[in-house]
């Protein structure tokens, strides 16, 4: 065991893992986190807590993780390199580890242009690839990247994100390999809608044996409506939603589209579950956490295994 997190144990035991995400609130009210987390509890092996996603200021990810932990949910700390230099990143990693957070995800972060403070100075002192390396160095070598010895190494199961659908496509698998080499233990993918393209990606990754060295959790997001699908396709950079997927939900009457979206998501998880090389799913039910149980249960993934 590298970090001894629940997620790591579940994966090591060969179970099909389930993660979800929880976006902290735009304010200091912990009840909002607890309310969302109640929908997550019991349904996942770990829950991501986002880090000022889309550059919109929110309660800190570390605080969100601790609130989840207090409720008995295993947190997964997301960390972007947009807002913190290497000094702050290291310091927050030590703090999060001290507070018992055992999973983390290394990200670049959306450009600050998209958030509330487009005039903010960005940092990008190191990039997400180097953050993976930094955490691994601290965890496995017990030293800071500067070479100084740590008084207690942080323990993290190290994750990264990949977008199999972004451009240019041909460097997507090489990037996964680079992240694995840098020290990633697991990867959560961008939401998958284009299963054909994803299978091409996965086959490439498998040919290089990457799935044996890094646990691949496939990202899924249930569609609430045809409108949401069209919006995401148009507005979210690197989001690939085939027309056939949109048509399937759009063919339903409006009031039945949400149910159809959930049904499609469950089907997709079941298909992913059978694919060699997929170690789990990451269910991003965006502002729809109350449906997590229905989706995860519907896919036959409940109850979650208890591993010691």
């Amino acid at each position: 065991m590298k970090a001894g997190s629940n997620l790591e144990k579940v994966l090591a035991a060969g179970h099909f893992a389930v993660t979800a995400e929880c976006g902290p609130p735009r304010g200091a009210d912990p009840e909002i986190v607890r309310k969302k987390a109640a929908y997550v509890k019991g349904n996942v092996d770990a829950c991501n807590v986002t880090d000022n996603q889309t550059s919109v200021v929110r309660m800190s990810s570390v605080a969100g993780c601790v609130l989840l932990k207090e409720m008995g949910i295993e947190p997964l700390l997301q960390m972007v390199v947009r807002d913190r230099n290497r000094i702050a990143l290291q310091s927050d990693l030590l703090g999060a580890s001290a507070l018992g957070v055992r999973n983390m995800l290394c990200l670049s972060g959306d450009h600050q242009k998209f958030g509330d403070d487009p005039q903010a100075k960005n940092v990008f002192d190191i990039d997400s690839m180097q953050l993976i390396h930094l955490v691994r160095t601290m965890r496995d070598e017990g030293v800071f990247p500067s070479g100084q010895k740590l008084e207690g190494a942080p323990k993290f199961f190290i994750g990264c994100a990949v977008n199999p659908f972004a451009d240019p496509f041909e460097i997507r698998v090489p990037r996964l390999k680079m992240k694995m080499m840098a020290g990633a233990d697991f990867v959560q993918t961008q939401c998958i809608y284009n299963m054909d393209k994803f299978k091409t990606y996965l086959e490439d990754a498998k040919r290089q044996g990457l799935h044996e060295k890094v646990k691949i959790l496939a990202g899924v997001t249930p569609l609430k409506s045809a409108g949401m699908a069209k919006f995401m396709k148009k507005m979210v950079a690197g989001m690939d939603i085939p027309d056939a997927v949109i048509k399937r939900i759009a063919d339903e009457p409006k009031e039945k589209q949400a149910a159809k979206g959930i049904e499609m998501c469950i089907e997709q998880i079941q298909e992913l579950k059978e694919m060699e090389g997929i170690a789990g799913v990451h269910v991003m039910a965006i502002e729809w956490e109350e449906k997590l149980q229905e989706i995860i249960g519907g896919a036959g993934l409940l109850p979650r295994p208890v591993v010691d």
Binding site: S108, N122, D127, S128, A166
Partner: peptide, 20 residues
């Protein structure tokens, strides 16, 4: 690179354009 990444591109690269 808008983020000065040394291992780019990030996920925001679409058809040759930057997310900014």
């Amino acid at each position: 690179c808008a983020k000065s990444l040394f291992h780019g591109p990030c996920g925001g690269s679409v058809q040759g354009h930057c997310e900014v």
